[in-house]
Amino acid sequence: EEERTFTNEEEARKAKKEAEKRGLRVTVTKDGTTWRVRIG
């Protein structure tokens, strides 16, 4: 499991799409101005 943080919503969405392409489970949460993308 890996967690990545982004300040840019577009980049967070891109990371989510890429992980889904690899067949991984992805959770995206917004924490104030930060987007957290949890993969795995």
Rank of each mutant, 00 (worst) to 15 (best):
E18V: 06
V28E: 00
E20H: 04
A19F: 11
R13N: 13
T34L: 15
R38M: 11
F6N: 01
D31S: 07
K16Y: 11
R13K: 13
K16H: 08
F6G: 02
W35M: 04
R22L: 12
E11Q: 07
R13Q: 14
E11M: 06
R25S: 10
V26A: 12
N8T: 13
N8Y: 04
I39W: 06
G32I: 01
D31G: 03
R25W: 09
R22G: 04
G40D: 13
K21A: 13
T27P: 00
V37C: 04
E3D: 07
T7I: 07
W35A: 12
T5G: 03
G23M: 02
G32A: 03
K21M: 14
D31P: 00
G32F: 00
A12M: 11
E20N: 04
R38T: 14
T27Q: 06
E20T: 04
R36K: 13
K17M: 13
E2I: 14
E1W: 15
R4S: 07
R25Q: 10
E20D: 04
E9S: 05
E3G: 05
T7D: 13
E10K: 09
T5Y: 13
E11L: 05
K16D: 01
K30S: 13
W35R: 12
R36F: 13
K16I: 15
E9M: 07
D31C: 12
A12K: 01
T29N: 04
G23L: 02
I39E: 03
R22W: 07
V37L: 09
K16G: 13
G40W: 15
D31K: 05
T5L: 12
A15Q: 03
A19L: 14
D31V: 11
I39M: 05
F6K: 01
G40A: 12
T33N: 15
G40V: 14
E1Q: 09
R4N: 05
T7E: 10
A15R: 02
V28T: 02
K21W: 06
T29G: 02
E11Y: 03
V28D: 00
K17E: 15
K14H: 10
E1H: 12
N8L: 05
E11R: 02
G40I: 15
E3K: 03
V28G: 00
V26N: 00
E2A: 08
E10A: 11
V26S: 03
K30R: 10
K17Q: 14
V37R: 00
V26E: 00
A19W: 10
E11F: 03
R36E: 04
E10H: 10
A12P: 01
E11C: 08
K17G: 08
E10V: 08
V37Q: 00
K16V: 15
T33L: 12
K14I: 10
G40H: 14
F6V: 03
K21F: 07
N8G: 03
T29M: 08
T5W: 14
E18L: 06
K16Q: 15
T7R: 07
W35F: 05
V37E: 04
D31Q: 07
R38K: 12
R36P: 11
N8I: 04
N8H: 05
K14L: 12
K14E: 13
V26Y: 01
T5A: 07
V28P: 00
A12V: 05
R25I: 12
T29I: 13
R36V: 15
A12I: 02
